[in-house]
């Protein structure tokens, strides 16, 4: 079976033009990354700021072209630098952004936001479009009465639901989720993660899930890729990566993630009281 998304040796260079005092230079944002995701699966791309994960997201979403390498969607090679995208290809990959406050047009009603992709890409009657939007609204856990409201009337979690609904309007095969829950509160984060899981099983969606939060990744991912300065330093199934990390950076990342289990807290408090008594003991002598 052909994977929904396959990337072979993707690179992306940025040319930083020189000025009077600086020489022009080239920044390698992504340095030869390869991966593939099968239908209905989730690939998580993990890394810290500046590791190239968002650049990669823009390449996969066909917003920016790759400098070199092959991007295959449903087995078809895509190169937006040389040929314009067809509406069909466009609608196969959609994106959900991190910040739910910037990703919805503040001057448009929810209904207009949802029907816009259909107006552009599909020949459909207005009432048909509206019915589709209403159905999608309910699917993501919102109500029909929200159709005529503006984005500023919604909470962050509800906006993220609208953003997800909008991305699904064109029935995409692949959804790129660029830190979709990191701007949300814990309780809302849980709701959105549940929603994403439900939608994935209902529509057989494939996810590329970009995140810096390892606990979320562990919860949602099938495969994990860890990026560090533009390189994929670790790539494998979730269990393999979490149970037996190979690269030292992956191990650093795991060690830095705060632990919320009771043993960890107990150990910390014990260390603390030991340090306190150690510090006061010489004084007592």
């Amino acid at each position: 079976m052909t994977p929904v998304l396959e990337a072979r040796d993707i690179t992306r260079d940025y040319h930083v033009p020189g000025s009077l005092f600086k020489k022009s230079r080239t920044v390698h944002a992504v340095k030869g990354v390869s991966f593939s995701v099968g239908e209905g699966k989730t690939l998580a791309i993990v890394g810290e700021s500046g590791c190239g994960k968002s650049t990669l997201a823009r390449i996969v979403t066909m917003i920016d072209p790759a400098t070199s390498g092959d991007l295959l969607i449903d087995g078809r090679r895509i190169d937006i630098a040389t040929e314009p995208l067809t509406a069909d290809m466009r609608s196969k990959v959609q994106i959900v952004f991190q910040n739910p406050y910037g990703s919805l047009n503040p001057r448009r009603k929810i209904g207009e936001i949802l029907t816009e992709p259909l107006i552009i890409n599909a020949k459909m009657r207005a009432d048909e479009r509206e019915a589709r939007a209403m159905a999608m609204l309910k699917k993501v856990g919102l109500e029909e009465k929200h159709y005529g409201r503006y984005p500023h009337m919604f909470s962050g979690g509800q906006r993220q639901r609208v953003a997800i609904a909008r991305a699904l309007m064109l029935n995409p095969r692949l959804l790129v989720l660029d830190e979709p829950v990191s701007a949300l509160d814990l309780s809302v984060q849980a709701q959105v993660l549940n929603l994403l899981a439900d939608l994935q099983s209902e529509f057989q969606l494939t996810y590329v899930f970009i995140s810096h939060d390892l606990s979320v990744v562990r919860h949602i991912a099938d495969d994990v890729m860890v990026m560090y300065f533009g390189e994929a330093v670790e790539y494998g199934s979730r269990d393999a990566v979490f149970n037996d990390p190979q690269h030292s950076y992956t191990r650093t990342l795991f060690a830095a993630t705060p632990r919320v289990d009771i043993e960890a807290i107990r150990a910390r408090l014990a260390r603390k009281s030991a340090a306190a008594s150690g510090a006061s003991a010489p004084a007592a002598l």
Binding site: L186, S187, Q189, A190, L193, D213, S215, V216, R218, H219, I220, V260, D261
Partner: peptide
């Protein structure tokens, strides 16, 4: 509820 919403505790 807050604690059980942590992905670690799923």
């Amino acid at each position: 509820a807050l604690l059980s919403a942590l992905p670690e505790n799923a």
